[in-house]
């Protein structure tokens, strides 16, 4: 028996941005033949904003480090001292991807040419954006966009959520009302949709049959 699965923005982000951790449970959920996955335009818009603000910013952080490396006096064939200098002096501790770039240097060959180092860093920042672009493309093949038919003011006023989570929750509730199959809310944002009694309250006032936490 099939069921509707309304995905919140967190599921799209988990599926598209993370390499493994949140991607795997989101992928398993989407690969479940029993689930008919949906999003809404509000979810798509929030995802697009988050992609610019988060995913592109991460890639920007790697590019800022590449710029710092180019400003340093390190060049030619690098040895372990050079690698250490890059990691401890050139890599800015305020860089948002500091821990990622530290891990990058930890696994780097201790003897590497400057040009190869730059190529690897470029590959890293391009991988960050490529992963999100390709995963979103996969996701779009699997998911339909639901266009809400009603605004449900009573349910809206009963829910204790901020925008855009409120509209997203209502969009999925509208799907649950109109879809022949039972519908659940699938979330990777348990803080807003699951914890502190939110799950129970959402089930109380909406037509969802379940709120599934995909981060567990």
């Amino acid at each position: 028996m099939s069921k509707g699965g309304f995905l919140d923005t967190g599921v799209l982000i988990g599926y598209c941005f993370t390499v493994d951790s949140h991607h795997q449970p989101c992928k398993e959920y989407l690969n479940d033949d029993a689930v008919l996955p949906f999003t809404s335009q509000t979810v798509e818009d929030e995802y697009k904003t988050t992609k610019s603000k988060v995913n592109t910013r991460y890639a920007d952080s790697v590019r800022l480090h590449i710029s710092d490396v180019k400003h340093s006096n390190i060049e030619g064939q690098l040895d372990p001292m050079d690698i250490n200098q890059l990691q401890t002096e050139v890599l800015d501790r305020r860089n948002e991807l500091h821990s990622v770039l530290s891990a990058f240097y930890d696994r780097l060959d201790q003897f590497i040419h400057y040009d190869e180092l730059i190529s690897k860093l470029e590959a890293l920042e391009r991988d960050i954006e490529t992963l999100a672009i390709q995963r979103k493309s996969e996701l779009d093949e699997m998911v339909d966009i639901w266009e809400p038919k009603d605004s449900h003011p009573d349910v809206r006023s009963a829910l204790d959520l901020h925008e855009p989570d409120l509209t997203i929750c209502i969009d999925g509730h509208d799907l649950a009302v109109h879809l022949a199959d039972e519908t659940e809310l699938a979330t990777a944002n348990p803080t807003d949709f699951v914890y502190d009694g939110q799950r129970e309250w959402i089930l109380e006032v909406t037509a969802y049959v379940d709120v599934v936490n995909l981060t567990e």
Partner: peptide
């Protein structure tokens, strides 16, 4: 390229 895969644990934690 595999570069992100190599640091996936640190990257996912950051995300």
């Amino acid at each position: 390229s595999g570069e992100l895969e190599g640091v996936s644990e640190a990257y996912d934690e950051t995300v």
